[in-house]
Design a protein around this nucleic acid. Structure first.
Length: 109
DNA sequence: AGGTTGACATTAT
DNA sequence: CATAATGCCAACC
């Protein structure tokens, strides 16, 4: 039986799960890796269904390194807490040393 | 079956 | 160089 929508979303989940510990990536990077470079918005949309899955959505941020999606999390600063817990410095929803923790699947993979 | 929305990104002013 | 507006693709209602 089909649990849920098996499509672009699942692909996004797969990549999100591949994000190394203490590392972050941007929606556009994942989208590009999937071949949908212009579907960056879809990636974030897909994360909406990440709830209950093994997808570390807290490791996915926008191109600015800003935790734009923290609004969708359970708590208010939950996302930031998770990132800091992995060694990623986050101040005011903004990731510090983004260039250090940035992980591009298209490059690393 | 169609219209609107969306956790972004890019291009133009 | 900084800010603003539009575009994209696919899913959701």
């Amino acid at each position: 039986m089909k649990p849920e929508t098996l499509n672009f979303f699942d692909k996004v989940y797969e990549v999100a799960k591949l994000i190394p510990y203490g590392r972050v990536t941007s929606y556009g990077a994942i989208a590009k890796y999937l071949g949908a470079a212009r579907s960056a918005r879809m990636v974030g949309y897909a994360m909406n269904g990440s709830s209950g899955k093994d997808v570390p959505a807290h490791r996915v941020v926008n191109r600015k390194g800003l935790l734009t999606g923290k609004h969708h999390f359970d708590g208010t600063n939950l996302m930031q807490q998770l990132l800091e817990s992995e060694g990623v410095k986050v101040i005011e929803n903004q990731i510090q040393d983004l260039e250090k923790v940035y992980w591009d699947p298209s490059k690393e993979l």
